[in-house]
């Protein structure tokens, strides 16, 4: 059993916290959504080499990573998706993925679902708004056909929604929609001004007022669907962060003392180029861990020695910035952290 993070040595035999590798095997997509953070679209052709990825997953598993989350692009357009999931499942990973759901009805993709533990379907709001942001009339209806496949196969699935100024007042509707269709999870993530959104949705910034509205509504939905559907909001109140920094600050957790990479970072990213980044898509390239096409078995050790000290300082500076900014009560930690990482000269 993988041993990663626990309070006592004795616990190591029993507890395995999730440590995630988020893989973007391709930016190829059947859509070109207005808010896409990876700038994916139909014109993107590059695909991650499956053999290199498998070799890296094998290495990372021995180091303590155990949760695979595939994003994109549309993951179902990755030629080697089944091979990837079969391999990662055999190794012991838990397989998760995010999809627009439109390609689910094919037999090939139904077969792939057999190896998926949890799939989240992206939804941008009611039909008209969804189609607008997806840039395709009929996208909502096609997505619903995919949801019907998940229902018929009795798969565990959820919905992921990007909160925008145009969608927040439909969150009550969205909760009922997700629950009525059998979702086990409704994940609410605020729009981040990154990727295509910086060109197409400049007027849709999630300000503190909207963050408050989403925060209150999400908490109401948590109560409403308590025990029946999980509501996950990717925003934190500043006071909560101050009281429990370990929610995001992995370095303040007890397991960080063990010093292996999965004890220090919850998530690493593999881009379609093979580049491995810490923490989140868009993190500054100066913090690159390596590349799946060329790495040695001391990859993580070297990264810890070379770059973790700077990341620790970055975390502390981000936390300080958030706690000092009394104008923003509700914060998107990862967006602020990524923005701070780009001031890398301060930390390098």
């Amino acid at each position: 059993m993988t041993q990663t993070c626990s309070a006592t040595e004795k616990d190591d035999q029993e507890i395995v916290p999730f440590r995630t590798i988020q893989v973007h095997p391709s930016r190829k997509c059947n859509l070109a959504c207005l808010h896409c953070y990876s700038g994916s679209g139909p014109g993107e052709k590059k695909m991650l080499d499956i053999d290199a990825l498998k070799k890296f997953l094998e290495y990372a598993y021995t180091q303590g990573f155990n949760n695979l989350s595939v994003s994109g692009g549309e993951p179902f357009l990755y030629d080697h998706l089944k091979e990837l999931f079969v391999f990662s499942k055999q190794l012991g990973y838990r397989n998760n993925m995010v999809s627009n759901g439109m390609l689910l009805p094919s037999q090939r993709n139904r077969d792939i679902l057999e190896y998926v533990d949890l799939i989240a379907i992206s939804i941008d709001g009611k039909k008209d708004l969804h189609d607008h942001i997806r840039g395709q009339k009929g996208a909502f209806e096609k997505m619903m056909k995919g949801v019907a496949v998940l229902q018929s196969m009795q798969k565990n699935f959820g919905f992921i929604h990007t909160i925008t100024p145009e969608s927040w007042d439909a969150l009550l509707w969205l909760g009922a929609f997700a629950f009525d269709h059998g979702a086990k999870l409704l994940q609410l993530h605020p729009l981040e001004m990154y990727g295509r959104a910086t060109e197409t949705l400049t007027g849709m910034v999630v300000d503190d007022t909207l963050a408050h509205q989403a925060y209150i509504m999400a908490n109401y939905l948590q109560v409403k669907y308590d025990g029946r559907m999980a509501i996950q909001l990717d925003l934190l109140h500043r006071d909560y962060l101050e009281a429990f920094p370990q929610v995001v600050d992995t370095f303040s957790r007890q397991c960080a003392k063990k010093g292996r990479l999965p004890d220090l970072l919850d998530t690493i990213i593999v881009e379609e180029t093979g580049r491995i980044l810490p923490i989140a898509y868009g993190f500054d390239a100066s913090f690159t861990i390596g590349n799946v096409h060329a790495f040695n078995n001391d990859l993580f050790e070297k990264f810890i020695a070379d770059k973790i000290p700077a990341i620790k300082i970055l975390f502390a500076a981000t936390m300080e910035r958030i706690l000092l900014n009394k104008r923003a009560d509700i914060v998107n930690w990862s967006e602020i952290l990524i923005a701070e990482s780009r001031k890398h000269n301060h930390y390098a």
Partner: peptide, 26 residues
């Protein structure tokens, strides 16, 4: 209202976690 909610959370009634964009909540 948000402060009242977070005050309850700090007493252990609820838990908050956050995910990066595109990662499914484990």
């Amino acid at each position: 209202v948000s402060s009242a909610i977070v005050a309850l959370k700090k007493q252990g009634f609820e838990i908050d976690q956050v995910n990066i964009k595109g990662r499914v909540q484990p």
